[in-house]
């Protein structure tokens, strides 16, 4: 082996060992410098990185995997210009708007979700934020879904006021999703109709009003390694219960349609880094995993993931829930509801 390669391997082992001590023995979070160093390890060290992330996940969260189903209850026609999203009304040939689904359609989807063994059902709306009618419909639906299915109900309805957040919390919403998507310094290249700070403020409101915060990321939009490390620091600061990890699946008609999906090895590296940065979080496989990871999907489950969306996504299709449930059975990972490490 060449001296340089030996030196690199030795340095990689040292970095991985230092991270293991910090996260498992000392139970402290890694800082930006430590994460950056791990992010720049050569590809040949990705299996060691994922093995460490899996050990950290087991040490902090245990073996349980949380399963969730999601439903777009109001699709398309969104006034915002999130460049990755096919539901924006600002781009050419994106999805036609459909009205709020009726209660029977929502309940039917919740029952489908419950049959997969899921514990969480999330209603998602393509809106900037809810108007009074929309908010009241959501508040009316939550107890009905809970009573009919026994599922915890989550909502994703955009930017909230404090009064709206409080009413959703009082109405029984278990978890509220509001993604940062990307680092503060990269966000203006992806969204211009609202600011990263507006998203961050809603995330703080969600926590303050007593709902669990689900705050995710979307990788593959052209952000750099530095942007990703910056985002990890911002998520550490926000301390969400759940982080859904999405991979860009380029949508026709959107400004990001020409981007290529991440490669599977890079995706695995970043799954591991999200776990190492956020050791106690519910780290959920979300959109784009099928087209990004392809045959590597089970490997993500041993790289730090401990939750997944089963079945279809908001506007695209996922693989069969049976395939995911078989994967979990084969990995001997039990299914159950999770909550954040306090």
């Amino acid at each position: 082996m060449a001296p340089d390669a030996a030196g690199t391997a030795s340095e990689a082992r040292r970095l991985l060992r230092a991270a293991e001590v910090a996260l498992i023995d000392e139970r402290r979070l890694l800082d930006a410098d430590e994460l950056r160093a791990l992010a720049t390890l050569d590809d040949e060290h990705v299996p060691a990185l994922t093995a460490l992330a899996h050990a950290v996940r087991l040490a902090w969260c245990g073996p349980t995997v949380e399963v969730e189903g999601i439903l777009s209850v109001k699709t398309g026609g969104c006034p915002e210009d999130c460049h990755f999203c096919s539901q924006s009304a600002q781009f050419s040939e994106t999805l036609p708007a459909t009205p709020f689904l009726d209660i029977d359609e929502v309940l039917s989807a919740a029952r489908e979700t419950a049959r997969t063994g899921a514990s969480e059902f999330c209603m998602v709306l393509a809106i900037r934020g809810p108007d009074e009618r929309t908010l009241q419909r959501l508040i009316d639906l939550v107890p009905v879904i809970e009573a009919e299915t026994g599922l915890n109900v989550a909502v994703s309805a955009g930017i909230l006021s404090e009064d709206q957040a409080r009413r959703l919390a009082d109405g029984g919403v278990h978890r509220y999703n509001h993604n940062l998507e990307t680092a503060r310094s990269f966000f203006p290249q992806i969204v211009t109709t609202h600011t990263w700070e507006e998203r961050y403020e809603t995330c703080l409101l969600v926590r303050r009003c007593g709902m669990e915060l689900c705050c995710g990321a979307l990788l593959g939009m052209g952000e750099t390694l530095e942007h990703r490390v910056e985002l990890l620091g911002q998520l550490q600061e926000l301390d969400p219960t759940e982080v859904p990890l999405n991979f860009l699946n380029p949508r026709p008609g959107t400004p990001l349609q020409i981007r290529r999906p991440l490669g599977p090895l890079e995706a695995l590296r970043w799954i591991a880094l999200f776990r190492l940065a956020l050791p106690g979080v519910i780290l959920r496989y979300a959109g784009g995993r099928e087209v990004t990871l392809r045959d590597f999907q089970a490997m993500g489950m041993t790289a730090g993931i401990n939750a997944l969306i089963v079945g279809n996504y908001l506007t695209t299709l996922g693989r069969s829930p049976d395939e995911d449930l078989r994967m979990l059975e084969d990995l001997q990972m039990p299914i159950g509801a999770l909550t954040g490490v306090i």
């Binding site: 777009s72 699709t75 989807a109 699946n249 087209v291 279809n312 506007t315 829930p321």
Partner: peptide, 26 residues
């Protein structure tokens, strides 16, 4: 054809479809 895409256009007239995706179908 991708196994992960619901159709976007009508095969008869080419118009954009209104698609509802739910957890186990569309």
């Amino acid at each position: 054809q991708s196994p992960y895409e619901a159709p976007r256009h009508c095969q008869r007239c080419g118009r954009l479809l209104r698609v509802t995706v739910h957890p186990t179908g569309w």
